[in-house]
Nucleic acid binder design. Structure first.
Length: 485
RNA sequence: GGCCCGGUGGUCAAGCGGCUAAGACACCGCCCUUUCACGGCGGUAACACGGGUUCGAUUCCCGUCCGGGUCACCA
């Protein structure tokens, strides 16, 4: 019972879900599930000044869309609740006070101004708090308390020695204790800092694997000192390499807004499918034993293992994400694709009534992002004004001399059709090519150009004519004839 | 700046003392083809550098360089 693996995703409600966070959540989920454990969602809202309205809903929504179902959390409950830190507020102070009694922490009455001044006057950019209140006499402390001087509670770091810990991906890491700041545990407003709340919550929620970004690597000793002060078992640490973005000048830095869409929502709005996003980010920093790349979430659970996690930072590659997206789109049934694409069809077509399943069938194989759809099919709704030079195509052996007669023959043949469907149109144009003694492409090119007004179209002449319908098609062909004189 | 971590093609990434150093994306070429795509085939391209250790280093150790992270009453 007590050996059951438990991981937790502990986001702050900031209003959006950065892909780095999402990947952390994914790995936490995968570690828990691949080991038969539980995945917990905890909301870290200890910063009262940064609260964002509706931010928690975005978290729920993202997790749901991504398929990361948590076993415990604010919305589903669980035996370790509450799962929102602000609701746990009064749990933390007693622990901090216990630390004070044990000489592992102390009250600090320094003002924000004094601290700022300290930083401003130091020539060492890494200079921290000067531990001014660390050795206050009992009288001084009581006097200030009596005077109601606001205070924070700081952790009393050892001045000598070093702290070593084991990370499941980075191995053994040692940090000199002298590098450690007397970090704040409880803020003046009574709320715990992230670092303190984390330790208390992870322990009281029985979290066995602490999974987080590698930016926490160097502060982990502080956490461990806290665990040791309480006599608690230190969890297994799994630090993840950061996700980077490529800057315009070629340099890289932590993935952020300027690199493009970086939140899950942005990505979805940019036309990426949740499954593709998950699949891609799973592989950003982790590799399976074999060469496999396509994984559903449950397949990831089956194949995931911590030793496949890499140590070096990975650059987020939109091209590769797009490739994954295209693969997922191609793997859909036409009906599924038609449904996913429907909003984009509407955007391009308005109230123009065309067979959307047929549209979907010509689009599916050539779509990598749903958002690319509208511009590809806009010509169905309204034919663009095109130049007659489009009728010239070397490969199809068409030019301004033969195009008029070719198009005329095609138009007449199509007009004679009694049935208007894919097969009849197809047979009609193929027969025409045979009759004229030209390549299929030569007969088709002028027809497709006249029907679409574009050199590049999804689908060929036959599909376009079929979808456009007899009346509209013939009208467009005649217009093409006029254009050619 | 101190400390921590990292360094295999443009990107992701196998490799864990002996290999012609995988694979994928991107890129280029060819084929297929009624355009574009899809698909198929092929190609260009990498162990940051310098010392060790070893019969032998991409792999182990040290240094250099480069990159990233971290030093908040933010998480």
């Amino acid at each position: 019972m007590s050996s059951k693996v438990r991981t937790r995703f502990a986001p702050s409600p900031t209003g959006f879900m950065h892909v780095g966070n999402l990947r952390t959540a994914l790995y936490e989920y995968l570690i828990a599930k691949s080991l038969g454990g539980d995945f917990v969602l905890r909301i870290e809202d200890t910063d009262q000044e940064r609260k964002v309205e509706g931010a928690v809903d975005i978290i729920y929504n993202t997790m749901k869309l991504a398929g990361l179902k948590h076993d415990e959390g604010p919305d589903v409950g669980g035996e370790y609740g509450p799962y929102v830190q602000s609701e746990r507020k009064n749990m933390y102070l007693p622990y901090a006070e216990q630390l004070i009694e044990n000489g592992k922490a102390y009250r600090c009455f320094c003002t924000k101004e004094r601290l700022d001044g300290l930083r401003a006057n130091a020539d060492d950019p890494g200079a921290g708090y000067d531990r001014h209140c660390r050795n206050l006499s009992q009288e001084e402390i009581e006097q200030k308390l009596a005077d109601n001087v606001p205070f924070v509670i700081r952790q009393k770091m050892p001045l000598e020695g070093s702290t070593t810990f084991e990370d499941a991906v980075y191995g053994t890491i040692t940090v000199e204790n002298s590098e450690l700041q007397d970090q704040i545990l409880i803020k003046a407003d009574g709320f715990p800092t992230y670092n303190f709340a984390n330790v208390i919550d992870d322990h009281t929620m029985n979290i066995t694997h602490v999974v987080r970004g590698s930016e926490y690597l160097s502060s982990t000793p502080k956490y461990n000192l806290l665990y040791e002060s309480f006599g608690w078992k230190i969890p297994t640490y799994v630090h993840l390499p950061l996700i980077m973005g490529k800057n315009d000048d070629g340099s890289i830095s932590k993935l952020s807004k300027r690199h493009g869409a970086t939140s899950f929502e942005d990505l979805v709005n940019a036309g990426f499918l949740p499954e593709a996003i998950i699949n891609y980010i799973a592989l950003l920093g982790w590799a399976p034993k074999d060469n496999r790349e396509m994984f559903t979430l449950s397949e990831l659970v089956e194949n995931f293992s911590i030793d496949g996690i890499s140590k070096s930072p990975a650059v987020f590659d939109y091209d590769k994400l797009e490739w994954f997206n295209g693969e997922y789109i191609k793997a859909m049934t036409v009906e599924q694709f038609a449904q996913a694409a429907d909003p984009y069809f509407s955007k391009a077509l308005g109230d123009k009534n065309l067979d959307r399943v047929k549209l979907a069938s010509i689009l599916q194989q050539r779509t990598t992002k749903l958002t690319d759809i509208p511009e590809k099919i806009a010509f169905f709704a309204q034919q663009p004004d095109y130049d007659k030079e489009l009728f010239v195509n070397k490969k199809s052996k068409t030019n301004l001399e033969n195009a008029p007669s070719l198009l005329k023959a095609g138009t007449e043949a199509l007009e004679a059709l009694t049935e208007w469907n894919h097969d009849s149109i197809h047979d009609c144009l193929i027969e025409l090519a045979v009759k004229l003694g030209v390549k299929n492409g030569t007969a088709m090119w002028p027809v497709r150009i006249a029907a679409s007004g574009m050199t590049v179209t999804p689908g060929g002449a036959v599909e376009i004519l079929d979808i456009l319908g007899r009346e509209e098609s013939l009208a467009r062909l005649h217009k093409g004839l006029e254009k050619l004189g």
